[in-house]
Amino acid sequence: MEAYQETNFFATLFIIFISAGLTNNILLARFLGMCSCLGVSKKVDTSVGLGAAVTFVTATTAALNYLVYYYILVPLGLEFLKLITFIVVIAAFTQFIEMVIERYSIKLYNSLGIFLPLITVNCAILGISLFMLNKPYGFWESFAYGLGGGFGWFLAIALIGGIREKINEKFLPEGLAGPGITLIIIGIMSLAFVGFSGMIKI
């Protein structure tokens, strides 16, 4: 904690970003956001597309939820409503993003297909918004934490997508194809990420 206070502002943000993304990876260390990860990680480009969308939504909703929590819920004494409020804010924001993607990048819209609504219920996004309240963060730190968490999810799904693309499922036992082998891959990868944990305390 002392080291944390001595470093300057931008370095702090950077450390929060790196630690949220790598040492406390939301997907590989906390196993959040699993359903959309299993669904969409078949190809690298859709993985990257969804990952980028999730990163964007996570970072923005972390900032939005920070403002909502400290400037609306706390003054009104309604902290206990944070869960439902965050869900609604995230859902509305995702709807908005869906509209924007549909209008301006029809290709991305089509490739995300029915998984777009999944962003709404992606627990990684809600998780980041809730976790950030446990830490003594200000606005920018929260934003960096959200960005880092989203980036971690992005990194994980892109890596998983890359591995799945290389796997020839023909050689797998029938029951293992699809989600089965993906879960095993995620398990092995998370072993590596558990190795990072505790390197940076935030």
Partner: peptide, 20 residues
């Protein structure tokens, strides 16, 4: 307060989305 807050929040977000 909680009820009023939830209703207002839903309303504001819904209006924003419809406009968007």
């Amino acid at each position: 307060t909680a009820t009023v807050f939830l209703i207002l929040m839903g309303l504001v977000l819904a209006i924003l989305l419809v406009l968007a």
